[in-house]
Computed example of a mutant assay.
Amino acid sequence: MVPGLDAEGGMQMLNVVFWDVDGTLADTEMDGHRPAFNRAFQELGLPFHWNREEYARRLEIPGGLRRVQQACQEVGHPISDELLEQLRERKRIHYGERIAAGHVGWRPGVRRLLHALKSAGIASWIVTSSGRASVNALLAASRDEQDWFSGIVTADDVQRGKPAPDLYQLAIKRAAVEPTHALAIEDSLAGLESARAAGLACLLTPSPWETGLPARYGEAVAVLNHLGDPDHTSTVIAGPACTEGVVTVKYLQALLEGG
């Protein structure tokens, strides 16, 4: 396919942006999910307390419950499905409390770009390996942002989370969009692999704990430290220059056209 053209030779106009949540929309991991897990571990008598360094290492495994299962295997502490479900529910409660208390902040440029996309008539969808309850907690604390998303696809909707393409494939189907007319925004290697496997161009705003991601930057259409705001401009790590200092609708369209 010629860069910038779709299968029928037309320009690849951007119709949908698919947003990851944890580490992309908001800095949820270290001050949201991590302490919520630690409180749940303590309540249920599990022998774990994840500091920042260990949790960063655990984030190489997509999905919170998969991280717990791996940790249990490492120490020879079997965990039943019943206990795992109890942990999931307790952790969800504590995560929601931390969100409501303001411990989790949105990443630079996210609100600005969401507003710009909606004004331009371009749909935004959430596509995440987290569960629906975690997404709802984040959106409930930011009422304006709830109206900016046309749909949500979570781990509750598929058998396999990222890096498998299932989440994005389902989002593409529900959004009724061709992959060539959509773009994913991700922060992780698992997210990049998932988006690319579904045929999507992917813009990366990497999380600092993604140590294996730099070697794969070439698979993204661009890599920036964040999306940028007028008083907090972004830096291009790889890809086309962002001359305005912030990611705009025009910049996203140019990325899509550039193939």
Rank of each mutant, 00 (worst) to 15 (best):
P3S: 05
G4E: 06
D6P: 03
E8L: 15
E8D: 15
E8S: 15
G10A: 12
G10C: 11
Q12M: 13
M13G: 10
V17H: 02
F18E: 06
F18K: 07
V21D: 00
L25D: 04
D27M: 03
D27L: 04
T28P: 03
T28F: 02
D31T: 11
D31G: 04
H33G: 08
A36F: 05
N38C: 14
N38Q: 08
A40P: 04
F48E: 09
F48P: 11
E54S: 13
Y55V: 02
R58Q: 14
L59V: 09
L65A: 02
C72H: 07
Q73N: 13
H77Y: 14
D81N: 10
E82K: 07
L83Y: 01
E85D: 15
E85W: 12
E89G: 05
R92F: 02
G96S: 02
G96V: 02
A101R: 12
G105R: 14
R112L: 13
L113R: 05
S119P: 00
S119I: 01
S119F: 00
A123R: 15
S130K: 05
S130G: 15
S130Q: 09
A133D: 14
A133S: 14
S134L: 10
S134M: 12
N136C: 12
S142I: 02
D147Y: 08
F149S: 02
S150T: 09
S150Y: 07
G151I: 02
D157W: 05
D157S: 05
V158L: 03
Q159H: 12
R160H: 11
R160V: 00
K162A: 00
D166K: 09
L167I: 08
Y168N: 07
Y168R: 07
L170G: 01
E178Q: 13
P179Q: 11
T180K: 11
I185W: 05
E186G: 04
S188M: 11
G191L: 06
L192R: 06
S194H: 07
A198P: 00
A201C: 07
A201K: 11
S207D: 14
W209I: 00
T211P: 00
G212H: 08
Y217Q: 02
A222L: 01
N225C: 12
L227W: 01
G228S: 09
P230W: 00
T233E: 10
V236C: 10
I237Y: 00
I237S: 01
T243K: 12
T243G: 07
T243I: 10
E244F: 03
L256E: 03
